[in-house]
Design a protein around this nucleic acid. Structure first.
Length: 501
DNA sequence: GTCGGAATAG
DNA sequence: CTATTCCGAC
């Protein structure tokens, strides 16, 4: 009851409202209201309100990270990100160190805030950290060893939780993303550097095992994932931001944005305040979920973008930089490490300096890393991180299934990569996507529902050239016919769907 | 400080 | 399921 604020405003869909609500929610509240109910609220400086005041809640969907199907409440990692996002909590918790790394400067306070949020007056850091530790196996977080109260997010995981629809793991984009998050030991992992490497990625790096992993029946968890998992990402409009590097294997100019509307490299990537509205002409009303699919496809290189209806295909945003929206106001994500960490090797990887060695196979350079990921190069013989070692035995590939994310990058071990490439994802993608599309104006969406032909080994397989396109962007014509074919197929699919319904 | 097992709550 | 609560071990 104490925290049951979710239904006050049944349908908050507009980002600004959400932002306001979020801000309010996180703003230190004056004592009073219902605070006394169950909150410890010993310290008065800052506390999160669990009050029922209207406008203080994210919309219901924002509190339903579908990564936790049963959960009706905000999840801890979610909450952590919230705090991280707010300046007022910088003294309590803040990004620090490597990309994705944050330090809990005031464990007690964080615990207290968490306790307030969850209405657990007796929350303390010990308990909170226990919860945090559960994330290790889920690979949402991992501990930065040797640094007190320091943890690190695995953003690819986070992102994928929210935008599994594109099955990033199997997409070239995600490979790129993965690079950042998955870390490589390549000395130069700046987005630009990485980007520059894509054109020469061998086929094998990208296409094979990503798709050919056998088949698994779509798991029941397939419908767990939704786009609304992450309020910061889906607060109302796609966060178009310039993708520093994610050009995928298609070296295009201009680059497209992060398909999931999230650019971890830009400040405020998670911010609730900096997501530009959907373009006026958008097919998808901004009052609802941002449609990652649309934004993705419209901005993707050929095979994808061409799937969109003519008007959309260009994304309209292929301007000089493909930047469709400006950004950010404040950094809620670790600052883009590129500048300060040119020498760094694990931008966004799950590893920290100390763990790098074990987290990244020696010699796993950029392309190698991709290859490893794509080919499942490391199959089981790799080293395990301590965390993995501990949990590894009993922590099977399914153990992180709660997230149902295909996470290439992963935080630590290669085994994880392997695990994360379970086919369950592939197989579930279609159904997942279908669910999503059906549920949200699928009619306007070309893409996914049409993409995965039921018989196709992989939904996106047919879209991704087996061989990397030639360095210079393929001619439009080259991608045109396939796309038309796909569109055609889409129509058929839609027809079938209609018939069935 | 950190870790993960176990029991338990919701 | 995700925590929460304890707790012993390191």
């Amino acid at each position: 009851m104490c925290c049951d604020i979710k239904h006050i405003i049944p349908h908050l869909h507009h980002s600004s409202v959400i932002q306001t609500a979020a801000a309010a929610l996180l703003r230190p509240q004056p004592p009073g209201e219902q605070r006394d109910k169950r909150q410890a609220s010993s310290s008065s400086s800052s506390s999160l309100s669990c009050s029922l005041r209207p406008g203080f809640a994210f919309p219901d969907w924002a509190y339903k990270p579908e990564s936790s199907p049963g959960s009706r409440q905000i999840q801890l990692w979610h909450f952590i990100l919230e705090l991280l996002q707010k300046e007022e909590y910088q003294g309590v918790i803040a990004w620090q160190g490597d990309y994705g790394e944050f330090v809990i400067k005031d464990p007690d306070e964080v615990a207290r805030l968490w306790g307030i949020r969850k209405c657990k007056p007796h929350m303390n850091y010990d308990k909170l950290s226990r919860a945090l530790r559960y994330y290790y196996n889920k690979r949402i977080l991992h501990k930065t060893k040797g640094k007190r109260f320091t943890y690190k997010f695995n953003f690819s995981k986070v992102v994928l939780v929210n935008y599994p629809i594109l099955d990033m793991a199997n997409s070239p984009f995600f490979l790129a993303q993965n690079h950042f998050n998955g870390g490589s030991t390549a000395p130069d992992c700046t987005p630009e550097a990485i980007q520059s490497l894509f054109p020469r990625l061998p086929d094998s790096s990208r296409g094979t095992s990503l798709f050919d992993r056998g088949t698994t029946a779509p798991g029941p968890e397939g419908d767990k994932l939704r786009l609304d998992t992450f309020p910061f990402l889906s607060s109302g409009a796609p966060c178009y931001s310039k993708p520093p590097s994610l050009l995928g294997p298609y070296p295009r100019n201009p680059p497209f944005d992060y398909p999931w509307g999230f650019n971890p490299y830009l400040p405020g990537a998670f911010s609730l305040n900096n997501c530009p509205k959907l373009p006026p002409g958008s097919l998808y009303p901004s009052q609802f979920y941002p449609n990652p699919l649309q934004s993705s496809l419209s901005q993707l290189p050929h095979p994808f973008s061409s799937l969109l209806p003519p008007g959309e295909a260009g994304g309209g945003e292929r301007g000089a930089n493909g930047t469709a929206g400006g950004q950010p106001t404040r950094p809620c994500l670790p600052p883009y490490p590129g500048g300060l960490s040119l020498g760094r090797t694990d931008i966004g990887s799950g590893a920290t300096l100390g763990e790098r060695v074990e987290d990244n196979p020696p010699g796993t350079g950029l392309s190698l890393g991709l290859g490893a990921v794509g080919l499942g190069a490391g199959t089981g013989a790799e080293r395990q991180s301590p965390t993995e070692r501990r949990g590894g035995v009993k922590q099977d590939p399914e153990s992180d299934s709660d997230l149902e994310i295909t996470d290439l990058s992963d935080c630590s071990s290669e085994n994880e990569n392997e695990h994360d490439f379970g086919l369950r994802k592939e197989s579930s993608l279609a159904s997942r996507s279908q669910i999503l599309l059906d549920g949200k104006k699928a009619s306007a969406l070309p893409p996914i529902s049409a993409l995965p032909p039921p018989v196709s080994p992989h939904p996106l397989k047919s879209l991704i050239p087996i061989t990397p396109p030639p360095p210079p962007p393929p001619s439009l014509a080259a991608s045109l016919s396939p796309s038309m074919a796909l569109r055609e197929r889409h129509r058929e699919t839609e027809s079938v769907k209609m018939m069935h319904s």
